[in-house]
Design a binder for these strands. Structure first.
Lengths: 213, 213
DNA sequence: GTCTATAGGCCGATAGAC
DNA sequence: GTCTATCGGCCTATAGAC
């Protein structure tokens, strides 16, 4: 697969109803089942169009998949709301950031696309990059910038802000996250999520809180 | 009449050369490509047997896959070597544990099976559990026991040893690990691995080192 | 653009000879 | 147990009518 597979930003948003139906059906099926098990017949049937119409809009199953999933990566990207300004309680701020990030990571849409990106990254190398760039990388970069500012202000002691940001994200993905990715029951509940966030914040502050806390 | 008490003819460890060839070929192909893309024809061809022979040993593709991958989970399990006894330098001990664990997590065999377990856990729920039980869960449990002992001895300050162990593992899986799972270049090199371990140990000791460090 | 119909191939699984 | 040969089905993709 070439990297041009993802570059399908048809300059004019094609609002053809059939095309839209195809995209919606393909998104639903691919996200639920991945690439292999979904047939073009099934997509055509779910979209209420014929296979010929399907192929009139998308040259091949590969291209349809890459278009759908690549676009989906940016669509479910982590909501990069701004981090709070100075003066708020550090623990509350971190807890809020952690809750938002972990909630995003555990959301069914995120899990689906992450699962698909992981397994299809061999066949579609651009998917891995698209997913990383769509959320995690940018989030860590922004969090690092915020941490650096807090460090400069003396409210954190994190000389290497990039590492600290990466580690805060990592602390939010303990075994519970792996268990969710592996679909091992029981699914994480709200209490477990909160406990994970609280523990991550606690450890982060123990490691990076201002000296002489 | 059966001539042995130890082996049932069809069920267990059959040393038949054909069966062994099937297992080896299927392992290689499934690990490299996952479930869907590998056909029974391909496995038979790679094992130099006919498809009929294949089906004489394994009732279906599903069962063959579950047998192969389930067994593989325990085979590539993390080497649970004992943790060092008392009296050694804490930083060195943690660094050694971290290097071994991260090296294991990034090994191609581990990445393959983890990728497969993640994507096929919907179709084969037992795979997720098998993978978790084969390594990560037990490792965290053992690490937690060691941390609890160190806590009791006053060499660590980790009241909740289970959380601390889980977080140490999590600190070893920053973005670099996600990048590896997504097959995004460049692959982690030795320097990056060492830097990740050192940073994880540093943060862990900042958070859980003995008070008044 | 959209349809029906089908080409052409590979799939999982089996029958029957030995 | 092991083989050859094959079945019936589903797959991607296309031809041709409208």
């Amino acid at each position: 697969m070439s990297e041009t597979l993802l570059a399908t930003p048809t300059a004019h948003a094609d609002a053809s109803p059939k095309r839209q139906a195809i995209i919606e059906a393909a998104t639903r099926l691919f996200m639920a089942q991945g690439y292999g098990p979904v047939s073009m017949d099934a997509i055509a049937r779910a979209a209420n169009v014929s296979k010929a119409t399907l192929y009139a809009h998308f040259a091949s199953k590969d291209r349809l998949f890459a278009t759908i999933v690549g676009g989906r990566c940016t669509q479910v990207a982590f909501d990069n709301a701004p981090f709070p300004a100075d003066g708020l309680d550090m623990r509350q701020v971190l807890t809020g950031i952690g809750r938002r990030l972990l909630g995003f990571l555990l959301a069914p849409e995120t899990q689906s696309i992450l699962r698909i990106a992981i397994v299809e990254s061999a066949r579609f190398p651009e998917l891995g990059t698209a997913f990383l760039d769509s959320g995690p990388s940018m989030f860590i970069t922004r969090l690092a910038a915020w941490i650096a500012a807090e460090h400069a202000a003396g409210r954190l002691d994190a000389p290497d802000a990039r590492v600290a940001a990466d580690q805060f994200g990592a602390l939010l993905r303990p075994l519970m996250f792996l268990r969710a990715m592996l679909a091992v029951k029981p699914a994480p509940d709200e209490a477990e999520i909160m406990a994970t966030v609280d523990a991550a914040v606690e450890t982060f502050l123990r490691a990076y809180g201002p000296r002489g806390r």
